[in-house]
């Protein structure tokens, strides 16, 4: 097993930052993942309010530009610096896995793949729950990282999860020390007091328990925006002032808005707030699992933490009485 002493952690990060783009959690007005220029801003244990997905699945991505019948794809840049992301939590890492399934396995998306290929993912294990909205311990999260750091007194125990992680350790070998310490199974678990207890969602579709929380929903789309797994998007054209150059863009979309299912002619398929609310929950904890074997939701709790009316849908489902 390898370890990284906390006393040399800052030196390690400084060294990494010198030759790589370093991304880590930062406490600003709120908390988010940012490209680091000053390592004193990093708070490695922070469970950020905003997700890290914008680094791979960007808010706005130009897919191609069209001008006078010629289509141009924005050039991929394999010579870009390597990116090292530090401080991802188990929920963040697992949601990256969900997005990898969609953008790299289901469809080969060149824009996403390029960003993923140049990134080393370094996780930091949460030894205790961050706040009362986390419910990751009930979401069957797996191991998905290049490196994982486990807090152990004055050092981090380091677990290697991929070839990319191994190469990274080799490059920064001087910071990593061999140790006799090892991880116990309980060291790798997460503990949260909130848990999604029900597994059979289909039987709950018409349950009266939905109503109270749905009535609180504003359809503001904060849950989608803050979700690290949500991958739906719009494709929209951006036209310049001369009306000649067109950019086809991919932008984040929200299933909570009516326009999400509005077709030409004006018909909206999920017209009621109830249908849209249920659609999000069912996509997160049923549909995705039916197809890929794992839930889309990773239990990070951001959708509850960021909800302006604080809809705790996990508690809502737990409280539903089964017939």
């Amino acid at each position: 097993m390898l370890k990284l002493n906390k006393s040399s952690f800052n030196d390690f990060l400084t060294d990494v930052m010198r030759y790589n783009e370093l991304v880590a959690p930062v406490k600003t007005d709120t908390s988010r993942f940012e490209t680091i220029r000053d390592i004193s801003l990093i708070d490695i244990d922070l469970h950020t309010y905003f997700t890290a997905k914008k680094f791979f699945f960007k808010k706005h991505q130009t897919l191609y530009t069209a001008e006078k019948g010629k289509f141009k794809v924005p050039e991929l840049q394999p010579e870009k610096k390597q990116r090292v992301m530090v401080g991802l939590k188990r929920c963040d890492l697992n949601s990256i896995k969900r997005q990898d399934i969609m953008f790299m396995k289901e469809v080969h998306d060149p824009y996403y793949t390029e960003e993923r290929d140049r990134t080393v993912l370094i996780g930091v294990h949460c030894a205790k729950e961050y706040d009362e909205y986390c419910f990751c311990s009930s979401m069957d999260l797996g191991d998905y990282y290049d490196l994982m750091f486990y807090d152990k007194d004055d050092a981090y125990l380091v677990e290697i999860g991929s070839e990319k992680g191994r190469n990274f350790v080799e490059r920064y070998r001087k910071y990593f020390w061999d140790t006799d310490l090892f991880l116990k199974p309980e060291d790798r678990r997460t503990y949260t007091s909130l848990q999604l207890q029900k597994k059979d969602m289909e039987s709950l579709r018409e349950n009266p328990g939905w109503k109270k929380e749905i009535d609180k929903c504003l359809s503001c789309a904060a849950c989608n925006t803050l979700c690290p797994s949500c991958y739906c998007f719009d494709m929209m054209e951006d036209i310049d002032a001369t009306l000649k150059k067109v950019q086809m863009k991919r932008n984040w979309a929200s299933c909570q808005l009516q326009c999400f299912t509005k077709v030409a002619g004006g018909h909206v398929f999920r017209e009621t707030r109830e249908d849209r609310f249920k659609h999000r929950i069912y996509h997160q904890v049923q549909y995705f699992k039916e197809k890929h074997g794992i839930n889309l939701c990773t239990g990070c709790g951001r959708c509850i933490r960021g909800c302006p009316t604080r809809i705790n849908w996990v508690k809502m489902i737990n409280d539903m009485e089964e017939k």
């Binding site: 969609m102 469809v107 739906c232 719009d234």
Partner: peptide, 8 residues
Amino acid sequence: LGLCGHCM
């Protein structure tokens, strides 16, 4: 392509 989610 089975990605954008609108048609689900």
